[in-house]
Every structure is written in structure tokens, then in C-alpha cells.
Amino acid sequence: MQEINQLAKYTTTNSALNSLTHLGKTTHYTFEYNPRLLESVPNPHPQNDYFIKFNCPEFTSLCPITGQPDFATIYISYIPNKKIVESKSLKLYLFSFRNHGGFHEDCVNTIAKDLIICLSPRYLEVWGKFTPRGGLSIDPYVNYGANNTPFQEMAKQRLWQHDMYPEIITNR
């Protein structure tokens, strides 16, 4: 019960929540890529190493050559440091790729770089599972571990072994 009271106190008194521009406000969708949509709040448990995972099964972008839409499920997993991403801002940010012309690999790397800039996480990975077009699907994966930490080695290991045991693909 004490933990619940502490969390309630945290969420209602933290001045960082007052600076959020999306949460609790009327939603205005941006149809052009915009990394400034990402917002963060303080990590309520910075002393703990824990994963936060987001699954975005409705990600869309455009082929930069043909202008045809590309569809994907984007998986974002990270171990926060001092900040966590505010989920509505993440939704709006991912939606901003709707008219973005970028190859699959570019989209996944851009998402990772923008989240690293916004959050400075201990560890982060982004995996795009794109639906096939022309009989070929592309599933780019990128990860990051903070320099000079055990997470830097973790990133190497997970990159080298990321697809050794592929999960069942359900978005195709």
C-alpha cells in the first residue's frame, strides 16, 4: 500500500509531468517525421535495471523510391536510465513516419537514434518486422548499450545472437 501511495505522490507532484505537451491534451497528428514529438519523464525506479517494451503493430512509412506504403510491427525494448519515454508522445512520434520516405533499415535506425538522444538509456533495441512486398520481407534490428557499462557488452551479444531463435511471425 505504501508503494501505491508513493507512486500516486510521484505522479501528481512531479513537475516534469506538467511540462508534457501531449498527455491529457487534444491529439494533433503530425503527418511528417518529427523527432521533437518525443517526450520523457523521470524514471520512477532509476536504481533498478528493468526492461520496458513497446509493440507498435500499425507502423507505416513510405518507400522513398515508389511512394508505396510499407507496414510493420515495430518492437522497442529498453532499459531506462534516468528517463522513460512518455507513451503518447511515442505513439505520435511513430505516427509521424506515416508520410516519411525511408527504407526499412533507415526507419529502424532513425527510431533508435532519436530514442537514444531523448532518453540516454542504459540499453535499447528496435526491431522492425515489415510485411512482404514483392514476396520479400525485411526485418532490420538495431541495438545500443551505453558506453563503458556492462550494457555495451550486452548490446554486442544480443546483436550477434538476435535471430538465433526467431519467434513466430504473426504479422504476415
Rank of each mutant, 00 (worst) to 15 (best):
Lys113His: 03
Lys9Asp: 15
Asp139Leu: 06
Asn171Leu: 10
Ile79Asn: 04
Tyr141Glu: 11
Ser120Asp: 03
Pro69Asn: 05
Lys91Asp: 09
Phe59Leu: 07
His45Met: 10
Val41Ser: 09
Cys63Leu: 13
Ile111Phe: 06
Thr13Trp: 09
Ser40Met: 11
Arg98Thr: 11
Ser61Thr: 14
Val85Ser: 04
Gly101Arg: 01
Ser40Gln: 14
Phe151His: 12
Ile169Asp: 03
Thr21Lys: 09
Gly134Leu: 12
Val41Cys: 10
Asp106Ile: 13
Gln68Trp: 07
Ser96Gly: 06
Pro121Gln: 05
Phe97Asp: 02
Pro46Asn: 03
Lys88Ile: 14
Arg158Ile: 15
Lys53His: 12
Asn18Lys: 07
Pro150Phe: 15
Arg133Asn: 03
Ser89Trp: 04
Tyr165His: 02
Leu23Pro: 00
Ile111Gln: 02
Gln161Trp: 15
Lys91Thr: 12
Lys82Trp: 01
Pro42Ala: 05
Arg172Glu: 08
Gly134Gln: 11
Ala155Ile: 10
Gly145Leu: 13
Asn5Trp: 06
Arg172Ser: 05
Tyr165Phe: 06
Ile79Leu: 11
Leu17Lys: 07
Ser77Lys: 11
His28Leu: 15
Asp49Ser: 01
Glu32Arg: 01
Gln161Met: 12
Pro80Gly: 09
Ile111Tyr: 05
Gly101Ala: 09
Ser137Pro: 04
Gly67Arg: 00
Leu90Glu: 13
Thr12Ile: 13
Asn81Lys: 07
Asn143Trp: 12
Glu32Phe: 05
Thr73Lys: 10
His45Cys: 04
Tyr123Ile: 14
Pro69Ala: 12
Pro64Gln: 08
Asp49Asn: 04
Thr11Pro: 00
Ile111Val: 15
Glu58Ala: 10
